[in-house]
Amino acid sequence: MELHYEGLVNLRDLEKIEWLSVRGCENMDDWCMDRISNIFARTLLYLDIRDCPNITHRGLAALVKMSKLKIVYLDDITYTNEYEMTCLMLQQVLPDLDIRIE
């Protein structure tokens, strides 16, 4: 399914979402990650953002707002030095976060 930034607003009333996969959504970008992290800051436990080539380390950094996040799935293809540094920062702020790179 194609999901766009504008469409994410339709998810804001889903207050009990714990798992979200946007895997393979080519329209997902850093702005989308910021919106997702705002909408699900207090509920999301698992996030899969594999195969989303437009999400950079900046979008990944937006996850710092997600206090309950336990697992995030990333691609090893897009894994750069910036991604690595952002992952380290996230794990310092969110010590229970498990970042799975596949």
Rank of each mutant, 00 (worst) to 15 (best):
E102S: 11
L44C: 11
T86E: 13
A62P: 02
N54Q: 13
D75V: 03
M33C: 13
D34S: 12
L45W: 12
L60F: 08
I71K: 15
D96Q: 15
F40I: 08
A41K: 15
M89E: 14
L63T: 06
K70P: 02
K70R: 14
K68N: 13
L74Q: 06
L45S: 14
E18I: 11
N54T: 00
M33R: 04
V93S: 10
P53K: 04
L63D: 10
A62H: 13
S67F: 06
W19D: 14
H57E: 15
D48Y: 05
L3S: 00
L88F: 07
R58A: 06
R58W: 06
Y73S: 03
D29H: 04
V72W: 05
Y46G: 02
I17D: 06
W31C: 11
I99A: 07
N27F: 09
A62S: 15
R35Q: 14
L44A: 10
A61R: 14
A62L: 00
D75L: 03
S21P: 00
E18D: 10
Y79S: 02
G24W: 03
L44E: 10
V9F: 07
V9D: 12
T86P: 05
T56V: 02
F40R: 11
D98V: 07
M66V: 02
V22L: 13
L20F: 10
L45P: 03
D30V: 07
T86I: 08
I36Y: 07
A61I: 02
L60C: 06
K65I: 01
D29P: 01
Y5I: 04
M28P: 01
L8D: 04
P53E: 11
I36V: 15
Y79V: 01
A41P: 06
C32A: 15
M33H: 05
L74C: 08
H57Q: 13
T78Q: 11
E82N: 13
N38I: 08
N81H: 08
S21T: 09
N27T: 03
W19N: 14
I36F: 07
T56K: 05
N54P: 01
R35I: 10
M28L: 10
M33N: 06
I49E: 11
S21F: 03
V9Y: 06
N38E: 15
C32E: 08
S21E: 02
R12C: 09
H57K: 13
I17P: 01
E15A: 14
L20T: 09
N81D: 13
R58G: 00
S37Y: 11
K68V: 00
N81R: 10
I49V: 15
G59E: 04
L90R: 07
I101Y: 02
D75T: 07
T86L: 05
H57W: 14
C52F: 06
E82R: 11
D98G: 00
L20I: 09
Y5P: 00
R50H: 09
L88C: 10
C32S: 15
D48L: 05
Q92E: 15
P53Q: 08
T80E: 03
R42K: 14
A61M: 11
D29R: 01
C32W: 07
Y46R: 09
G24R: 07
